[in-house]
Design a binder for these strands. Structure first.
Length: 106
DNA sequence: AACATGACAAGTT
DNA sequence: AAACTTGCCATGT
């Protein structure tokens, strides 16, 4: 039984634990937060955070490694932040995603 | 209250 | 392999 508040909370917790230099996906976060099929809501939550800079929103990409949320940032802020952490981006996609991917664990 | 939309993902064609 | 379809569910109109 997961109510939306729990889900939201867990997402934030997981989000705050993404290591520098790694990325993770909406689906993985959703799964660890207890609602495997709610990956969409994860993105929605991030958008409501409005890039507080309190959470590393830029380290979340879709399962393809594509920077789907980049338009929520200033121009190419997202890409810049990731590159600054050593993540290579080509054509808005994370290069070698498998290596950079961080699997959330509680 | 009903309907459309979205920072996704998995399955089918 | 790429395009299309379906499931999902909180938010906004």
């Amino acid at each position: 039984m997961f109510d939306k508040k729990d889900f939201h909370e867990k997402v934030l917790i997981i989000l705050s634990r993404i290591p520098i230099g790694s990325v993770t996906t909406y689906g993985l976060i959703a799964e660890k937060a207890g609602a495997k099929s709610s990956s969409r809501q994860v993105g929605y939550i991030l958008s409501t955070l409005k890039n507080n800079n309190l959470y590393p929103c830029h380290r979340v990409v879709n399962r393809n490694g594509l920077l789907t949320g980049k338009f929520n940032f200033k121009e190419n802020e997202m890409e810049k932040l990731l590159k600054a952490e050593g993540i290579e981006i080509i054509e808005d996609k994370v290069v070698n995603l498998k290596e950079k991917l961080w699997i959330p664990n509680l």
